[in-house]
C-alpha cells in the first residue's frame, strides 16, 4: 500500500520523532552493536572482525555458561511465580474490597520506589544477614538457637530480594485487569448458581489473565538480566548469567563472548515470554 504522507501523518511523526530518535540511538543502535560483536573474535587487545559462530558455540557448550543460564532462568521463574502469587491477592483486595481511598492505597504501593534499588538490596542484607534483624529477632524470641544461614548469600536471598523489588510492578497490571471486569458479570455468574469460589475460577481468573500475563512478563524479563541483586546477596550460589556477561565485558576482556552470551540470553527469554504470552491468551479464553 502506498505511504500516504498527509498533514495528519506528518504531525503524528513529528510528535513521536524525539522518542523515536531516542529509542533508535539508545536502544536499537547498541543492540545492533552487541549482535555484531557476538560474531567477532577478541584477539588479545584488538578485535578480529571476521564473522564467526565460535562465540555461540562456546556459550552454548561450556558447562559453566549452561549452569549459569539455567540458574538464571530458575531464579527468575521462581521470583516471577512468587511475586505474581503474592501480588494477586493484594491486587484483588484493592480492586474488590477497598471502597474508599483506592488512590491512597495505590500511592502506598509505590512507596518502595522512594528509595533507590541499590539501597533496598542493601537493606535486605541488613535484614537477612548473620547478625541481621531477622536472625537476632528470632534468637531473641527463642525460636532458634543459632542464626539461620540459608537466608543470605544464596539463591533464597536473591528470590526474596527480587520478589520484593518487583512486587509493585506485578500488582498494578493485575489490579488494572481486575478493575476492568464488569461487576455485573460476577453477579450473573452468581445468579446462574456459582459459589464464590467457582465464580472466581470461571469468570474472575480468566478475565484477569491479561493482567497476570503482563505481570509475569514484567517481572520475568528484567529479573533474568539482573546482576546487582545476585552480586550483593547471592554469594557464589546465587550468581546469574548477567554477572558472567559483566565479567566477560570487563575483567575477562572478551566482549564478543559476552555479547554472544547476552544475545543467547535474550533469545531464550524472548522465546519463553512468547510462550507465556500465547499460553495466557489461550488460557484466558479457555478456563471455565
Amino acid at each position: 500500500m502506498a505511504w500516504r504522507f498527509d498533514r495528519e501523518a506528518g504531525q503524528g511523526l513529528k510528535l513521536i520523532s524525539p522518542t523515536f530518535g531516542y529509542v533508535l540511538v539508545m536502544l536499537a543502535a547498541p543492540l545492533l552493536m552487541v549482535i555484531t560483536f557476538s560474531f567477532w573474535t577478541q584477539d588479545y587487545l584488538t578485535i578480529d572482525t571476521t564473522l564467526t559462530l565460535d562465540n555461540y558455540r562456546e556459550a552454548w557448550t561450556q558447562p559453566l555458561y549452561q549452569v549459569l543460564m539455567w540458574r538464571s532462568l530458575k531464579i527468575s521463574l521462581i521470583v516471577t511465580v512468587v511475586t505474581v502469587l503474592l501480588a494477586f491477592p493484594i491486587a484483588y483486595y484493592l480492586s474488590f474490597h477497598v471502597k474508599k481511598r483506592k488512590a491512597l492505597w495505590l500511592f502506598l504501593i509505590t512507596v518502595p520506589f522512594w528509595t533507590s534499588y541499590l539501597l533496598r538490596v542493601f537493606l535486605w542484607k541488613v535484614i537477612l544477614g548473620y547478625n541481621g534483624v531477622f536472625n537476632t529477632t528470632l534468637m531473641g524470641l527463642g525460636f532458634i538457637e543459632e542464626p539461620l544461614t540459608f537466608i543470605l548469600y544464596n539463591l533464597n536471598a536473591v528470590v526474596i530480594t527480587l520478589a520484593h523489588a518487583w512486587a509493585p510492578f506485578a500488582i498494578l497490571p493485575i489490579f488494572v485487569a481486575l478493575e476492568k471486569i464488569d461487576r455485573s458479570l460476577l453477579e450473573a455468574a452468581t445468579d446462574l448458581g456459582d459459589s464464590p469460589m467457582r465464580r472466581f475460577f470461571r469468570i474472575t481468573l480468566p478475565l484477569a489473565m491479561p493482567g497476570i500475563v503482563a505481570s509475569t512478563l514484567i517481572v520475568l524479563i528484567p529479573t533474568v538480566g539482573d546482576f546487582i541483586t545476585p552480586r550483593l546477596v547471592g554469594g557464589t550460589d546465587g550468581l546469574m548469567i548477567s554477572n558472567m556477561i559483566q565479567i566477560q565485558f570487563g575483567k575477562a576482556n572478551n566482549a564478543p563472548l559476552g555479547a554472544a552470551l547476552a544475545v543467547s540470553a535474550m533469545v531464550v527469554i524472548g522465546l519463553i515470554s512468547a510462550g507465556i504470552f500465547f499460553a495466557g491468551k489461550k488460557l484466558g479464553g479457555r478456563v471455565r
Partner: peptide, 9 residues
C-alpha cells in the same frame, strides 16, 4: 441484566 452481562470470554 440491563447490561446483559454476557461473559466475554
Amino acid at each position: 441484566f440491563q447490561s446483559y452481562a454476557i461473559f466475554p470470554h
